[in-house]
Simulated assay, not measured.
Amino acid sequence: MNPSATPLVELAGAGYAYEDGPAVLTGVDFAIPAGRALALLGRNGSGKTTLMRLLSGGLRPGSGALRLDGTPVAYDRAGLTRLRTSVQLVVQDPDDQLFAASVEQDVSFGPMNLGLPTAEVRARVDAALTALDITALRDRPTHLLSYGQRKRAAIAGAVAMAPRVLILDEPTAGLDPDGQERLLDVLSGLQASGTTVVMATHDVDLAVRWADDAAVLTPSGIRVGPAESLLSDPPLLTASGLRTAWSPAVTAFLRTRGLLDPGTPGPRTPDALAAWA
């Protein structure tokens, strides 16, 4: 990360409490820089969902500020439209997001709501369906999609908004291994095309393998750093209700046995370990 660059979106001293409840987040400073793959981790109840909703404008901080390109977000129609054309959140359950009769209608809803010309709406829908590899499902009723297809359709609806930041809440949850790999390939393609991707996950191994950076919500605040080194910290993981990542643990074991030189990257997947051995 380049600390001198203005983050795309950031929370500064932000706090939030639900009505008649204790504070969920207090004094949060959290920034999303451009061009990174960021994994967001923490135990259930740590505030991940609240954090994502604050970043995407679904909730307004009770204290502090949300900034877009260094400028405080205005919570009026114009300000929220500006934010939501830059930052899109895809919730965990696609059925909470899909509502139109067909995939094409659902994906086109956001761009149409922006008042874009028909030709641009069609172009955005075509590009989103292609990016998510669901062009063949264009006319399929959303209620006839498989779970994995519904996940992709929900993400396509967000991608059609051409956001600079795409925030995904547990996108691989409920998918089989092949579905997870296909989705990760899609996310890598989106990142390569210029979209900054943030993924909330409980899967530490996935975070180490996929993300450039990680943010871990702990009882004392948010720790942010390079994914592999941050998620190799056993006390941090224990305090956050997370298990030790497979890759760093294997790498440390190989180094203590003299089987891997210091500074040499370790295997990041079981297949890579088998090939290395």
Score class of each variant (00 low, 15 high):
Met1Phe: 11
Thr6Glu: 14
Leu8Gly: 00
Leu8Gln: 11
Leu8Pro: 11
Ala12Ile: 15
Ala14Met: 09
Glu19Thr: 12
Ala23Val: 05
Ala23Pro: 10
Asp29Ala: 00
Ile32His: 10
Pro33Trp: 00
Arg36Ile: 12
Ala37Thr: 14
Leu38Val: 14
Gly45Met: 04
Gly45Ile: 02
Ser46Asp: 06
Thr49Ile: 02
Thr50Pro: 13
Gly57Phe: 09
Pro61His: 06
Ser63Gln: 13
Ser63Tyr: 01
Gly64Phe: 10
Tyr75Asp: 03
Asp76Asn: 13
Arg77Gly: 15
Arg77Lys: 12
Leu80Arg: 02
Val87Asp: 10
Gln88Gly: 14
Leu89Gln: 10
Val90Leu: 01
Asp95Gly: 12
Gln97Met: 15
Leu98Val: 06
Leu98Glu: 13
Phe99Met: 14
Ala101Gln: 12
Ala101Glu: 15
Val103His: 05
Gln105Pro: 00
Thr118Arg: 15
Val121Ser: 01
Val125Leu: 03
Ala127Gln: 08
Ala128Glu: 07
Leu132Ile: 13
Asp133Cys: 00
Asp133Trp: 04
Ala136Met: 08
Thr142Ser: 08
Leu145Ile: 09
Gln149Ile: 00
Arg150Gln: 14
Lys151Tyr: 02
Ala153Ile: 05
Gly157Ala: 03
Ala158Gly: 12
Val159Gly: 05
Ala162Asn: 10
Leu168Asn: 07
Ala173Tyr: 03
Gln180His: 09
Gln180Asp: 01
Leu183Asn: 06
Leu184Met: 12
Gly189Arg: 13
Gln191Ser: 13
Gln191Asn: 15
Ala192Tyr: 00
Ala192Trp: 03
Ala192Leu: 10
Gly194Leu: 12
Thr196Val: 01
Val198Asp: 12
Met199His: 07
Thr201His: 05
Ala207Arg: 06
Ala207Leu: 07
Val208Pro: 04
Val208Arg: 02
Asp212Ser: 11
Gly221Tyr: 10
Val224Trp: 03
Gly225Ala: 03
Ala227Glu: 01
Leu230Met: 06
Ser232Gly: 12
Pro235Val: 03
Leu236Asn: 05
Ser240Met: 06
Ser240Val: 08
Thr244Tyr: 00
Ala245Leu: 08
Trp246Ile: 14
Thr251Asp: 08
Pro270Ala: 04
Ala272Val: 07
Ala274Val: 15
